[in-house]
Simulated scan of single mutants.
Amino acid sequence: MSISARYYDGLVATSHQVNLFYERLGTTGALVLREPQSNAELTRWPAQTLQVIPGRSGELRLGAVGLPDGARVVVSGETDIARIRATLPMLEERQRRESGRQVRLAALSTLALAAVILAYAFGVPLLASRIVAIVPPGWEEGIGATVAGQVEASIGGDAGLPLCDPNPQSPANRAIARFADRVIAEVGSPFTLDVRVVRSDVPNAFALPGGRIYFFSALLNAARTPDEFAGVLAHEIGHVAHRHGMEQLISTAGTGALIGFILGDMTGISVAAGLGSTIIDARFSREAEREADRFAATVAQRLDFDPAALARLIGRVGQDNDFSRALALLSTHPLTDDRRLALEDLGRERPSGLEPAFTNAEWNAIRDMCKPETLKAK
């Protein structure tokens, strides 16, 4: 006795009305599809290849392994569906196995996604310092140049970077370059420093991979002594010397950085793209900040400035409040008071008779470099 059904061959969208027959062949059988008028056989599907395809309520959809994805037979009506299931009991078992497989696949996919998230959130930052150690300095300089282009575009736009003093041979720029060269030369860093003082209302300073440092005029104007300026600049040079900027980029870029490193694409495209506008506000880890603070204190052992002045300047432009103290255990940035106390301890043993970081004339030139020309002339 046949069962009426709709047949889709998977090649065209048109359906064909067919009659279904089941032929037993020894221990197995086949589902035979015949044309209703002529009773001609259109195709037959071996029973061992049959499977249930998810469909609408009140329908039973059958497919077969090895056929086009759209090939199916659709049976409607509770009576005919019950007859199919009674004739082909193996369909129930296969459907249960498929449901179990889908559940296992979903669970494995969820676990895999969780593993990727954990690796991205915790694994990559832990690996970043090790990756940095094997990144060639030339690659880091290339990445730094890419990020610098994005940073300068975000700061200056079409007008270009608003430097306080574009003349590299001015007394102020020469004094800053002399200080930076003396500091970096003592640590054997492969990078040549390029310190740029930029007009900005934001009190900030930051270092990029490869040696570029930006010092914003609002922070310079907030400095009351050459010690405060020298402390911040030495701190930023510490970030360059310890390659914290590259470490931060790798940690932020995550798996993209790892892939770029494996493929040899560390020239700035895979790691730095899109990060220039965010690195200005990026904060290094507590350990990186402490390391840069210790670097500044070490510089103060060679040049005559108080490393604790760094924390005093930061304290004036970003004073700790009750909210920041409450979140101190969760914050990646050390509290200013903690930094000040640590820097005071580090600077307590400074020897006497050291050469000043800047002469009075140099400090006056640096302090005035971001003032309007009319005020400089006076």
Rank of each mutant, 00 (worst) to 15 (best):
H235A: 10
N173I: 02
N39D: 15
R312Y: 03
D265H: 08
L60G: 12
G264W: 04
N173V: 03
G264D: 13
T79P: 02
V202L: 15
L193M: 14
V240A: 03
Y214A: 03
L354C: 10
R104C: 09
I143Q: 11
A47F: 03
Q301S: 13
D304W: 12
A119Y: 09
R83Q: 13
G156H: 08
C164D: 04
G210K: 08
R316T: 15
H235L: 09
K371V: 10
T359G: 10
R72K: 12
Q319A: 15
A121G: 07
R6E: 01
I155Q: 07
Q102F: 04
F179T: 14
A308C: 04
L113S: 11
R174L: 13
I366D: 10
I279D: 12
F358M: 08
A342K: 11
S331M: 10
L354P: 13
S270N: 11
E98V: 01
G245D: 07
P351L: 01
L375C: 02
I250D: 10
S277P: 08
I134Y: 13
G138R: 09
F358G: 11
A133K: 14
L335C: 05
T49A: 06
A207C: 12
T49E: 05
L354V: 02
G142C: 02
P136N: 12
P36W: 04
A119T: 06
L303Y: 12
E35P: 01
L31I: 13
L346F: 15
F216T: 03
I213Q: 04
S251I: 15
T267N: 14
R182N: 09
Q95M: 05
R6Y: 01
E93G: 03
L113T: 03
L67S: 07
R174W: 04
G274W: 14
D306G: 06
D281V: 14
A230F: 14
E78Q: 10
A185V: 11
G276W: 14
T49V: 07
D227I: 14
S57H: 14
L105P: 02
L113R: 02
A145K: 14
D345Y: 05
L42W: 08
F229E: 05
I184H: 09
D281C: 03
G347D: 04
G149L: 05
T43C: 01
N204V: 06
A177G: 03
A106K: 08
I269C: 02
F206R: 06
Q95F: 05
A297P: 04
Q48M: 05
D9M: 02
H239S: 11
L31M: 12
T252V: 13
F122V: 05
R34Y: 07
L62S: 01
G245F: 05
